[in-house]
């Protein structure tokens, strides 16, 4: 196939950029061409242009790694302290898991790769939760704009279901990962419930919920409010509805829906 040489060269460039073996590429960039089965002329071309090839490796890796360092500073601090951040990043690059042409998707791709592979979670069981919590507000802030859900009203009734705003997330972690910081990146082990949503200005906000409120928000999406409040043993319907009105006013709840009988 006529294009196979061009494709081979492109694969060699990808190998040069993404593969580990820093010392190998530093001493011989032609190794990237050799790995793709390219001939002596191609290997020599890579080798003879060492400074330019190393520039590509540096620039391309920087463009892929910088968003991760920005989005996951606490995770980086945790892994850096154990000398494991670079290894984590290299394992991610080795997996060729960045499949989206949207630059903003690099962070979510990293999160997806952590979830799919379980990388590091035998040593740090909270690692995936920590990464998710670090990116949660960004995901909510940039959730694709969509038409508001139809047939919802603003004031809740006992037979209504809760309809969350499409960007809203109710999440439960086994660790208090929202309280960590770079100087203290290991979270306390305690169940944590968070509500992440966009306010009226479109800015992301984060609230810590009680277990009962988290359960209310999840369960009342699929069964009547009064029934949910009773099943959860909450103090009464009125306080629950007042809370839901507040969350509707703040933007977390799109409205309330009463299914046809």
């Amino acid at each position: 196939m006529a294009e196979s040489r061009t494709l081979g060269l492109q694969r060699a460039m990808a190998s040069l950029v993404l593969d580990g073996d820093e010392a190998v590429f530093e001493s011989d960039p032609g190794e990237a061409a050799r790995r793709q089965g390219l001939g002596d002329a191609e290997q020599r071309s890579f080798r003879d242009q060492g400074p330019g090839m190393r520039t590509y490796r540096e620039l391309a890796r920087m463009s892929l790694i910088e968003p991760l360092e920005t989005l996951f500073p606490v995770l980086k601090a945790l892994l850096d302290a154990a000398g494991a951040w670079d290894g984590c990043i290299q394992a991610f690059l080795d997996a060729r898991a960045i499949r989206s042409s949207h630059y903003r998707d690099i962070g979510p791709a990293f999160l997806g790769w952590l979830a799919a592979t379980g990388w590091g979670q035998d040593r740090w069981p909270f690692l995936l939760e920590l990464a998710h919590a670090e990116i949660l507000e960004v995901l909510v802030a940039r959730f694709p704009d969509a038409d508001p859900p139809g047939e919802v009203h603003a004031d809740p009734g006992p037979q209504d279901r809760v309809v969350l705003d499409p960007a809203t997330q109710v999440v439960t972690y086994t660790h208090a990962v929202h309280r960590v910081r770079e100087q203290a990146p290991v979270p306390e082990a305690r169940p944590t419930h968070l509500l992440a949503f966009r306010d009226g200005e479109g800015e992301a906000r984060l609230l810590e919920l009680t277990p009962a409120t988290a359960a209310l928000l999840v369960q009342a999406q699929t069964r009547p409010l009064a029934e949910t409040v009773a099943a959860l043993g909450l103090p009464g319907l009125t306080p629950a509805m007042n809370l839901l009105r507040d969350l509707h006013r703040d933007g977390a709840i799109a409205g309330f829906h009463r299914p046809l009988a």
Partner: peptide, 14 residues
């Protein structure tokens, strides 16, 4: 990009 992997860099053609 190559083989479905996006490199997010403007890389030269031969």
């Amino acid at each position: 990009g190559v083989d479905g992997s996006c490199l997010h860099e403007l890389l030269p053609l031969p």
